[in-house]
């Protein structure tokens, strides 16, 4: 099992149902800076016309996650399914992981005095037999698809085999697992919402990167 998520970010309307569902489902602390997931917004303009790009996002559960390496107490760790989790009991709030994360996906949960982040709803939903995360289930336009990269016949891998995609900040070398689906029918939107240096991948080009990183890291996966 290697949990991941594909995002048809072109569908996003920035309604933030996902943010609220996440907070409700997981009891996340209130406050604008206390987010397990969020919708990234960039506003530009070309010749005076506004352009809005939305990037719904959360922890990438990177296969080669730097946040795990910097943790002095093993609070940040890999778990089965390639999840990156935080053991609240072990966290000493040094915030090294928050510095190391290229995606700014972590924050301090003041309720328990520990770092908090997205768990792919593993504890609240997936381990209870549900197939979707709270953010995916509630989304009006169904941006997200959660699934298992090891299941070749599963919906997620089938989707990634049929669509081109990109990941955020690939050059950080963390092998992230949020796959943003390339807007194949809208060149204008693709040009304006994807950086020039971003590599557009197919399953064939990205699968080896996952395999390589997983071979290096999966020994560290603890059982849940």
């Amino acid at each position: 099992m290697n949990f991941a998520m594909a995002l048809d970010y072109q569908n996003c309307i920035n309604c933030k149902a996902c943010e609220i569902a996440c907070k409700e489902e997981n009891g996340v602390q209130l406050g604008a800076d206390k987010q397990r997931i969020w919708v990234g917004v960039t506003e530009n303009s070309i010749f005076g016309r506004p352009i809005l790009s939305l990037y719904p996002s959360q922890c990438n559960h990177c296969v080669d996650a730097p946040c795990v390496d910097v943790c002095p107490t093993n609070a940040s760790h890999f778990a089965d399914g390639g999840l990156v989790l935080v053991d609240q009991e072990k966290c000493i709030l040094c915030k090294g992981c928050m510095e190391a994360c290229p995606y700014d996906a972590r924050f301090v949960d003041d309720k328990v005095a520990a770092v908090d982040k997205c768990t792919f709803c593993f504890d609240t939903r997936i381990s209870q037999g549900k197939a979707t995360t709270a953010c995916q289930a509630t989304c009006p336009t169904k941006v997200r698809l959660f699934g298992d990269l090891d299941d070749e016949e599963g919906e997620l891998v089938q989707l990634l085999k049929s669509r081109k995609f990109f990941v955020l900040k690939e050059n950080e070398g963390t092998v992230p697992k949020l796959f943003y689906l390339f807007p194949e029918h809208d060149d204008h939107f693709a040009q304006n919402s994807i950086g020039h240096e971003t590599t557009i991948h197919t399953w064939e080009t990205f699968k080896p990167l996952i395999d390589m990183a997983k071979a290096k890291r999966s020994k560290q996966w603890t059982s849940l």
Binding site: C15, K16, A17, E19, I20, A21, E24, E25, A134, A137, T138, C139, P140, K142
Partner: peptide, 25 residues
């Protein structure tokens, strides 16, 4: 009441609950 989830049986709202719906708690 700890959470409001979408009910997929309704053809009108399909399987979704918007931010206000989830915040009904």
């Amino acid at each position: 009441v700890t959470k409001l989830d979408p009910n997929p049986h309704f053809p009108k709202s399909k399987n979704m609950l918007c931010p206000r719906g989830v915040a009904g708690v």
